[in-house]
Simulated assay, not measured.
Amino acid sequence: MFKLLLHVDTADDRLGVALRNAGNALKALSGAPASIVLVANGPAVQLLGKANPDHAASLSALMAQGVVVRACGNSLNDFSLFPDFLVPGCEVVPAAIIELVRLQGEGYAYVKP
Rank of each mutant, 00 (worst) to 15 (best):
13 D>K: 12
10 T>A: 10
42 G>D: 14
110 Y>T: 09
62 L>R: 11
30 S>N: 15
48 L>H: 06
24 N>M: 08
85 F>V: 00
74 N>F: 00
29 L>I: 12
63 M>E: 07
98 I>H: 08
77 N>R: 15
67 V>M: 10
87 V>C: 14
56 A>M: 05
109 A>D: 01
59 L>A: 09
56 A>Y: 13
98 I>V: 15
50 K>G: 15
63 M>Q: 11
25 A>V: 10
64 A>V: 00
86 L>P: 09
13 D>G: 09
48 L>S: 08
74 N>I: 12
35 S>K: 12
1 M>E: 07
42 G>L: 01
104 Q>M: 03
5 L>V: 03
92 V>M: 04
41 N>G: 04
77 N>Y: 07
7 H>K: 12
42 G>S: 09
64 A>L: 02
108 Y>G: 07
43 P>N: 01
55 H>C: 04
60 S>W: 01
57 A>F: 08
18 A>C: 13
97 I>K: 00
64 A>C: 01
90 C>Q: 13
88 P>S: 11
91 E>Y: 00
5 L>I: 05
110 Y>S: 09
63 M>F: 06
72 C>W: 05
48 L>Q: 09
51 A>P: 03
51 A>M: 08
73 G>C: 04
30 S>R: 15
84 D>T: 12
20 R>N: 09
18 A>P: 11
6 L>Y: 05
45 V>W: 04
91 E>G: 06
31 G>I: 14
97 I>N: 06
25 A>C: 12
38 L>M: 10
102 R>D: 14
62 L>E: 10
12 D>L: 05
81 L>E: 13
61 A>T: 12
111 V>Y: 03
62 L>S: 13
42 G>F: 00
40 A>K: 00
5 L>R: 10
42 G>I: 00
2 F>M: 15
26 L>P: 01
31 G>E: 11
77 N>M: 13
6 L>F: 07
94 P>M: 05
37 V>L: 04
70 R>Y: 03
7 H>S: 04
25 A>H: 15
37 V>A: 10
10 T>E: 15
69 V>W: 08
74 N>H: 06
23 G>I: 03
41 N>W: 12
106 E>C: 06
36 I>F: 02
48 L>W: 02
56 A>L: 10
112 K>D: 02
47 L>G: 02
36 I>M: 11
99 E>W: 02
73 G>D: 03
11 A>P: 07
55 H>M: 05
12 D>C: 04
84 D>S: 15
82 F>I: 13
95 A>C: 01
76 L>T: 06
9 D>F: 00
16 G>Q: 10
76 L>C: 11
27 K>V: 10
101 V>I: 14
93 V>F: 00
57 A>P: 09
38 L>I: 14
46 Q>L: 14
65 Q>I: 05
110 Y>E: 04
52 N>C: 11
9 D>C: 01
